[in-house]
Design a protein around this nucleic acid. Structure first.
Length: 364
DNA sequence: AACCCGGGGTT
DNA sequence: AACCCAGGGTT
């Protein structure tokens, strides 16, 4: 054997053990994580906290998640507490994190775990996969991190790290099954959860999308992408389509005496489903801004604000023309269409970011 | 397989 | 302004 020469076909067990050594020295400290040191001292991960963090981390960065995780676990320390919570309070606590179907499924899942599982999460990948809001990635992550199951955890970090390690040039998403097979092959029988977290940490801190720090990487000697000078170009991806721009109008009614604002609920499904908004028009590419006032929810002295609110969603850019009206004595506005929200509690409403921008444009 | 879902960060 | 990042559900 030529152990002194770099070997691009190093065995799975040598690859996993070298990465675990790196993880023992460099693991990030995270609010939901039991680090290698505490793990050896006997501390075990809390499945509830692992689940909650993994759902929050779907399409969302650690930095954005941290403060939400603290509020959620302080307000609802166990899955039974979350199951007992009012769904509206959960939506309010989730406001600003995005992808609001995650919050609705989070509540459904908590209710199910409390009612059908006695408040204990199932401990196998297949059983977890059946729960609302838990897909292939999250099921594998909970099974291995919380329950020490051997599972192939594949998220965006893993796709990037392994496509480089094995020089997989097939574009995503076609390469997904191949990457999953590589991860299953590399995952060790001992400490499978730490290994999954190590690969994801490597992707988050060293094997980054742009300018990877290959010089610091524990796998640099054997990484085929690095050796070929192609690491930064991987993974390959199918080309993305560009976003259209939609236009619309938003109407902020302010009670002259109290400063309260009139709000309403969006439909439970679809874009920003179940979240709170101010009344407005449809959002469409061919919206005629000149006809905005025809979409006002009720007659009032609507004054157009200067500038437009701009916001970008997954599939389109949005430009909203904002109107404000000072009202008084409007108790006749039925609660079936919406409600008046007091000025000093407005920030606690389940307002998505685009609506917070609208309120800023209208009230400042 | 294709499409529907936010928000934040970097360049 | 343009680009980048990142899972689950639905159909």
């Amino acid at each position: 054997m030529q152990q002194t020469m770099a070997d691009p076909h190093q065995s799975p067990s040598l690859l996993s053990s070298s990465l675990l050594e790196w993880y023992d020295r460099h693991a990030r400290t995270l609010p939901w994580r039991v680090g290698p040191e505490n793990r050896r001292l006997g501390e075990v991960p809390d499945p509830y906290r692992i689940w909650l963090s993994e759902v929050m981390l779907q399409q969302t960065t650690v930095a954005a998640v941290k403060s939400y995780f603290e509020v959620f676990t302080r307000t609802w320390p166990t899955v039974k507490d979350l199951a007992a919570a009012d769904e509206e309070d959960v939506m309010k606590a989730w406001a600003g994190l995005g992808y609001y179907s995650r919050a609705r499924n989070l509540k459904k899942c908590a209710d199910l775990v409390a009612s059908a599982y006695g408040g204990e999460f199932p401990d196998t990948e297949n059983a977890l996969l059946k729960l609302p809001g838990i897909g292939p990635y999250t099921a594998a992550a909970i099974a291995t991190i919380a329950f020490d199951r051997h599972a192939a955890v594949v998220d965006g970090n893993v796709e990037r790290v392994l496509s480089r390690l094995k020089l997989i040039e097939t574009p995503l998403p076609v390469a997904k099954p191949e990457i999953k097979a590589v991860m299953a092959d590399l995952t060790p029988e001992a400490r499978p959860g730490d290994f999954a977290q190590a690969v994801m940490d490597l992707g988050a801190t060293i094997c980054t999308p742009k300018k990877p720090a290959c010089v610091l990487c524990p796998w640099r000697e054997t990484c085929e992408g690095h050796r070929a000078g192609l690491a930064e170009t991987l993974p390959r991806k199918a080309p993305k389509t560009k976003k259209p721009t939609r236009h619309g109008a938003a109407f902020v009614a302010v009670d002259a005496a109290s400063g309260a604002v009139f709000l309403r609920r969006r439909p439970p499904e679809g874009l920003l489903g179940g979240m709170t908004e101010v009344p407005g028009s449809v959002w469409s590419e061919d919206f005629d801004t000149g006809t905005s006032l025809a979409h006002a929810p009720f007659a009032a002295d609507w004054q157009k604000r200067t500038g437009e609110v701009k916001h970008t969603f997954t599939h389109f850019h949005l430009k909203l023309t904002v109107f404000r009206a000072e009202m008084s004595g409007n108790d006749q506005l039925g609660t079936d269409t919406g409600w008046w929200s007091a000025a000093d509690t407005l920030s606690e409403e389940a307002l998505p970011t685009v609506m917070r921008k609208v309120l800023t444009a209208a009230l400042d």
